[in-house]
């Protein structure tokens, strides 16, 4: 055989084959729709599916998401727990720079907690 094969040539072959499997049927379907089976869109067909009933109003309404506050609070304590344990274990051997960096990191998280506190999330109503 002639030229030396590149050791990663098979990756290229795999990629081209995978792309062909993914894109080939889509191209075939588009050609089929273009030349044989015409698309027939319509008002009812394109309308929102609502179990056969006509949908009332607009689906694009502003949705008030309350849950993100809990997500932020969870993140504050979750991340703090993950990083504080290794921090506490290695505390005696750390340099001053590392401790300062860690304190800044904790300060950032505490800011999130303080923000939530000011917003009144911690008060049970």
């Amino acid at each position: 055989m002639g030229a030396e094969k590149h050791p990663y040539l098979f990756l290229l072959v795999f990629f081209v084959m995978a792309l062909g499997f993914a894109v080939g049927p889509l191209i075939l379907a588009a050609l089929w729709a273009k030349f044989v089976s015409p698309q027939k869109p319509g008002n009812v067909k394109n309308s929102t599916y609502e179990c056969g009933l006509e949908s009332k109003g607009d689906a694009w309404v502003a949705f008030k998401s309350e849950y993100y506050l809990y997500a932020i609070l969870f993140l504050v304590f979750d991340v703090e727990t993950i990083f504080l344990l290794p921090f506490a274990v290695a505390f005696t051997g750390l340099s001053v720079g590392a401790i300062l960096a860690m304190l800044i990191f904790v300060l950032l998280l505490v800011e999130g907690l303080a923000w939530a506190w000011v917003k009144g999330v911690l008060t049970w109503k």
Partner: peptide, 14 residues
């Protein structure tokens, strides 16, 4: 009946 016809209309061909 209108719901049945609407569901039929919303089905793609064939």
């Amino acid at each position: 009946a209108p719901q049945v016809v609407r569901l039929y209309n919303q089905m793609p061909e064939p």
